[in-house]
């Protein structure tokens, strides 16, 4: 995947790519992303799986591939 802002190319595995594709369709919370991915890849939604996905999301955020935003509780 090419990121125009940094000019860098990122090599993603299938699950990493699916994270980007899902978020490209619509924004989601971390828990929603974990739930959808567990369904898509037929994995159990345990703590270990969620932790790995959240680590990946943090990494993608640091690379500028996705943007983490705070949920506005009044909205």
């Amino acid at each position: 995947m090419f990121q125009p802002d940094s000019g860098k190319t990122h090599f993603l595995n299938q699950m990493g790519l699916q994270v980007i594709l899902n978020l490209n369709e619509k924004p989601a919370t971390e828990d929603e992303i974990c739930r959808v991915l567990a369904q898509q890849f037929k994995r159990s939604l345990d703590q270990n799986f969620s932790l790995q996905i959240k680590k990946t999301l943090n990494r993608f955020d640091a690379l500028g591939l996705i943007e983490k935003v705070r949920m506005d509780s009044s909205a």
Binding site: F2, P4, G7, K8, T9, F11
Partner: peptide
Amino acid sequence: SEAFLLLASNSFNYEVLGETGF
């Protein structure tokens, strides 16, 4: 995927060309 990685890393100016290189 493996061929892409090998080919891009074999280029002298892949990063310089940016999206054109990609």
